[in-house]
C-alpha cells in the first residue's frame, strides 16, 4: 500500500515541476543569447580603388593640375644645368626638389637626373639609346631598362588593370608604371594593413558565452 500513495505524490510533484518549468520558460530565466562583440567599422579608405599615386598620364588625361610638370615655370629655358655630387657620389638636390628621394636602383648606380630626364628639355624624358619620350608616356622609358617587366606589363600581367575583362562589353583600363611606382623611389612603399578577421567567438568571452546564469 505504501507504493500506492507514492503515485499521487509523484503526480503532484510532476504537476508542480511542469508549472515551474513553464514559468521559467516564460520569464526566460536562462537569458537571451549572448550579444555579439562590437566590431568597429572598417576605414572606408581600405575599399577605395584609387592607385597608390597619380601618374603624369593620369593628370593629363583627367586634365588635373600639371603645373608640377611644367619645368620652365622655374627653370630657365636653354640654360645648361650642372649637377652637384657629394663625396659619396650622391647627387645633391636643390631645396626646391627636396621632396624627391633618390632611391632608384641599388648601389647608387642611378643617381644622375639625366639618366632619365633630357638635359636639353627638362619636360621630356630620354632613354639610354637616345630617344626622347613624353612625360606621360613614361612607360616607354621604364621599359627601355626593365625588359621582362615591360613585356609583362604589355601583356597585362604586371601592374594594375581595371574595368572590363571582356572588352566587347566595356573598356579595359591599364595603369601605367608611375601610377604605382615613384620613378625616383620605385619600390612600392609599405603601408598599413586593413584590420584582420574578427572571430565569431572571441576567446576571451568564451566562458561567458555559455549563458547559464
Amino acid at each position: 500500500m505504501k507504493a500506492e500513495r507514492k503515485t499521487p505524490l509523484v503526480l503532484s510533484i510532476l504537476t508542480i515541476s511542469f508549472l515551474i518549468l513553464a514559468a521559467t520558460f516564460l520569464t526566460d530565466i536562462w537569458g537571451k543569447s549572448a550579444q555579439l562583440p562590437e566590431i568597429p567599422p572598417v576605414d572606408p579608405s581600405f575599399t577605395k580603388t584609387a592607385t597608390a599615386r597619380v601618374s603624369a598620364e593620369e593628370l593629363y588625361r583627367t586634365k588635373g593640375d600639371t603645373s608640377m610638370l611644367e619645368c620652365y615655370g622655374c627653370h630657365e629655358q636653354g640654360k645648361e644645368l650642372t649637377l652637384k655630387f657629394d663625396e659619396d657620389h650622391n647627387v645633391i638636390l636643390p631645396d626646391e626638389h627636396d621632396d624627391i628621394i633618390m632611391a632608384h636602383g641599388t648601389h647608387n648606380r642611378n643617381n644622375n637626373c639625366f639618366n632619365c630626364h633630357d638635359e636639353h628639355n627638362l619636360e621630356v624624358l630620354q632613354t639610354r639609346d637616345g630617344r626622347t619620350v613624353k612625360i606621360q608616356d613614361g612607360h616607354d622609358l621604364c621599359g627601355s631598362c626593365h625588359g621582362p617587366t615591360y613585356r609583362d606589363w604589355l601583356a597585362g600581367i604586371h601592374g594594375r588593370t581595371s574595368g572590363f575583362w571582356n572588352v566587347s562589353m566595356g573598356e579595359k583600363h591599364r595603369e601605367t608604371c608611375t601610377a604605382c611606382h615613384d620613378p625616383h623611389q620605385p619600390k612600392f612603399l609599405p603601408r598599413k594593413p586593413a584590420p584582420g578577421p574578427n572571430p565569431l567567438r572571441p576567446v576571451e568571452v568564451k566562458h561567458s558565452e555559455g549563458k547559464a546564469h
Binding site: 577605395k48 594594375r160 581595371s162 575583362w165
Partner: peptide, 14 residues
C-alpha cells in the same frame, strides 16, 4: 557583366 571582380579592382599592386 564583363567586369573584373572587386578584389582585383582594389588590389593596389596589381
Amino acid at each position: 557583366a564583363g567586369k573584373y571582380p572587386a578584389c582585383m579592382e582594389v588590389c593596389p599592386t596589381g
